[in-house]
Design a protein around this nucleic acid. Structure first.
Lengths: 186, 186
DNA sequence: GTCTATATTCCGATAGAC
DNA sequence: GTCTATCGGAATATAGAC
């Protein structure tokens, strides 16, 4: 796969996560690469195409992370910590996560992008729900709610807090992360 | 104040909350009102101007709600329930909340709009933090975290869940709301 | 005071050059 | 296979008509 293509995917993802889907243009990408905006259309014929590819790449990355944790025999606590680390990293890089950036624009996305975004969210919530459920059975976690409710609350907190920390410097993301984990301690 | 102006503010807010700030245009508003897009510029010279006015209107609405609850001598539990009802209403109307719609686009907003949005978020978090703190002192609520952490988690859950329920029909917002309240029961 | 005709800029996309 | 010149349209905004 071409290097330019890879760079476009990376630049596109960063633009979505900093400016939002409807605010970035092919121009933003091409100028960064020193080419004309139309050159980007060679690799990704339409913006729909690029957006969908970016989400697909992120799905793949998530699947690889999960596989990796299973291979290394991480317990539930370690898996949750690793997952949360993704968001702390985003926080440090002053970026939102892809889901938090695209979700508010969902109604304006093309059909193929909608499908992939939905798939990505379903996948994360399903994994998190099962992780919480298993963790509670193994007495690694303790909580009262139904696992799917708890998963939704945790995921939502991570996603929205990233959006808010971009605005309020005061908010301490590390502290939030700790709150979430402390809350699950047996 | 003119009726057209009021309608523009209302349409603008709905467009932000369904399509996002960078996806809606003056055309969207003017066509709905049966006038030319330039007529909207008479009431709001620039999009920055309109966006800022919409946020200011929302700040005012929030302040009125708080005043009203204080006047009616709502206790902390009733106040929290009333606050959460705003989001349940948004959910039923298939809209995101203003904060959740604008926050991801923060970097692309004009300076005056940024200032108001930041003010709005600060105001909500401050109010919620103090409510939780007071409620715990009065033994209306029970929780372990620091009040500001708890406020951030609750607010984030409400905001992001609205974004996610727009995508996943499966998610039960009523259930989430109940989870948040149950979690605070003494 | 209220709105329209029109300018300007930028966007995503096509056709075709190298 | 890779990229550029260029189009059609939509976005924001101004100047001026009623």
């Amino acid at each position: 796969m071409s290097v330019t293509r890879e760079k476009i995917l990376e630049l596109g993802e960063n633009l979505i996560r900093t400016k939002g889907y409807n605010a970035f243009s092919y121009q933003d990408i091409s100028s960064e690469l020193g080419i004309k905006n139309a050159a980007v259309h060679y690799y990704f014929p339409s913006k729909e195409n690029l957006g969908t590819s970016i989400v697909k790449t992120n799905i793949q990355r998530f699947e690889e992370m999960v596989d990796n944790m299973v291979n290394r025999k991480f317990n539930e606590w370690q898996q949750l910590e690793t997952f949360i680390k993704i968001y702390v990293k985003s926080y440090r890089e002053h970026k939102k996560c892809l889901v938090g950036s695209l979700s508010p624009d969902y109604n304006t996305l093309n059909e193929t992008t909608k499908v992939e975004l939905k798939k990505m969210i379903e996948m994360i919530l399903k994994w998190l729900t099962e992780l919480l459920d298993r963790g509670r059975n193994n007495e690694v976690f303790a909580f009262k709610d139904a696992p799917d409710s708890k998963a939704l609350i945790i995921f939502s907190s991570l996603v929205a807090s990233l959006q808010l920390t971009g605005i309020m410097e005061k908010i301490d993301y590390k502290c939030l992360q700790q709150s979430i984990l402390d809350d699950l301690k047996p």
